Computed example of a mutant assay.
Amino acid sequence: MLLDPYYIQQDSNITISAEQASIFAKKECQDFNPIHDPDSKRFCVPGDLLFSLALKEYGVSKSMSFTFTNMVGDNIPLTFPEATSDDIVVTNAQGKSVLEINKSGEMTQDLDLIESLIKNYVVFSGQNFPTLLMPLMKKHQVMFNPARPLVMYNSMSFEFDSLTLTNPLRVELAESKLEVESKRANEFLHFDIYDGDKIIGRGIKTVVVGGLKPYDHDAITAFADNYLANRNAF
């Protein structure tokens, strides 16, 4: 499966190395957020990888929400429990919640649908910076600190009208918003899920942008140029 190179199954636990997490972010999501670099002091496993592992484990339900409650570090054992109800809590070795899932409605374990949703969603999700976030920061005249960028996945949810596909699935942005609150902002990325030309689902990704400061076009552009250079080099 698509995810096999990016985790290790150890008895009932899953572990993800910093290297595996970083390669997933860069290769599958085209996400070069420094927080996913193995040598980052604030390293954490990408939320998109945890989301993807949850779909592998629990399938796709018509309605699902995912809330990221704690950061996951290098080689931290994670427990994805048996789905005995519609509310699921993924925990770390200390028993602390790292991902909370709610699901409802019809469910499918169709591997083609699961992999298609993972592939298309994580690429959409990974384009947040600079493609989606830069224009929003410019509009609101704020930005994160380029020396200590803090852009953290908070949650995502989606709803399907139908889990039966007749064409290749794709995910596209529907609307983006930034709500600024003093030194932080909440970014909302609304997206549509297509089966061919027909919208069969919709969802929203929320991101927290911390350490806000006044917008400096030259500084944030230099950061973005370096970010894109790293992406192109990879």
Rank of each mutant, 00 (worst) to 15 (best):
T164Q: 14
Y7V: 00
D31K: 12
F68M: 01
A93C: 04
M71W: 03
A185D: 10
L132R: 12
E115K: 10
N226A: 09
T15E: 09
N75T: 07
S61W: 04
N13K: 12
V180L: 04
Q94N: 13
A185E: 08
F124E: 09
D225E: 15
M71H: 11
L150H: 05
R42F: 06
L3V: 11
F191S: 02
T131D: 14
K62N: 12
V98P: 08
P5H: 05
M64F: 01
D48L: 02
V72E: 08
K198P: 02
I16C: 12
N232T: 12
L150C: 01
T221K: 13
Y6A: 08
D197Y: 05
E187R: 12
T69S: 15
P34C: 07
N13T: 13
D39E: 13
L189A: 09
S155F: 01
S176V: 03
D195E: 06
L189R: 13
S63Q: 13
V207G: 03
Y194R: 00
H140C: 09
A83T: 10
D37A: 08
T164K: 13
S85N: 10
S125W: 03
D87H: 15
Q9P: 03
G95Y: 05
N186A: 04
E187V: 15
Y7G: 00
L49D: 10
K26C: 10
R170L: 04
N154V: 04
D11R: 11
E57W: 01
V171E: 14
G73C: 08
M64I: 02
E187M: 14
Y6N: 11
Y215A: 02
G201L: 01
V207Q: 01
T164P: 06
A147W: 00
D192P: 02
G211Q: 12
H36V: 08
V180K: 04
I8R: 14
E100D: 05
K27R: 14
D74Y: 07
K62H: 06
V151C: 02
E172W: 00
S97Q: 07
T206N: 12
T206V: 09
N186C: 03
L132M: 01
E181T: 09
P135D: 04
S12H: 12
K138H: 13
Q94W: 00
G73I: 08
T79R: 06
S17Y: 04
R170T: 14
K198N: 12
Y6R: 08
M143Q: 15
G211P: 11
F43Y: 10
L117T: 06
R170A: 10
F43R: 03
K183H: 12
V72G: 07
K177Y: 03
A233D: 11
K119M: 05
D48M: 07
K138L: 06
I204L: 15
L132I: 06
E57D: 11
D31F: 06
V122K: 09
D31L: 09
S155H: 03
L150F: 11
L2G: 02
P149V: 08
P149N: 05
S85F: 03
F160T: 02
S125F: 10
E28Q: 13
T166S: 15
D11W: 01
R202L: 07
S104L: 02
T84E: 08
D37N: 13
G105K: 03
K213F: 00
I193T: 06
